[in-house]
Amino acid sequence: MTTTIIKTTTKILTPLILVFGSYIILHGHLTPGGGFQGGAVFASGLALLIVANKYETIKTLFEKVPLSVFESIGALGFLGMACLGFAGYTFFKNVIANSGFPIFGGKTPVGINPGYLNTGGTLSYMNIFVGIKVLAGLTSIVLIFFLIMRRERDEW
């Protein structure tokens, strides 16, 4: 499955899909989409990269990427962001929003507005952590399906 047409198409399409997935994750509190959707789009771009390349290339490329560490970082970060609400409030309380924190802590305008990226509080952090978790999990499933492939049928 590694013909020249597929390789060229993948080389052009993969950066666009990855940028679109990152955009959906980062703008989760403003536009449709969120952590799960953006992570799924990002993982589909990585799956395109995995399917369209040779076995040895993928193996040497993904040996240095700690996907299980990403998965754990996503789960623990999500729980930690939820536990931040214990500082005076309840679990899952949005404490960073409207507090003047420099990242994602700006004042949210009420009513119809164009949408400012520096708002959202813990929702934006939760979007990013869930996105990291989903992309690591789905990519590792596709990667393990690819890596258990028998060597003698590698031509296809």
Binding site: Q37, A40, A43, V51, L138, F145, M149
Partner: peptide, 26 residues
């Protein structure tokens, strides 16, 4: 429902297709 549309297009049309293709190839 654009949220569900993005999730369906990402998971249903790309990821499960890749998983099924790799399983059939195995």
């Amino acid at each position: 429902a654009p949220d569900v549309a993005i999730a369906e297009a990402g998971v249903g049309a790309c990821l499960t297709t890749a998983m099924y293709l790799l399983a059939i190839k195995n």
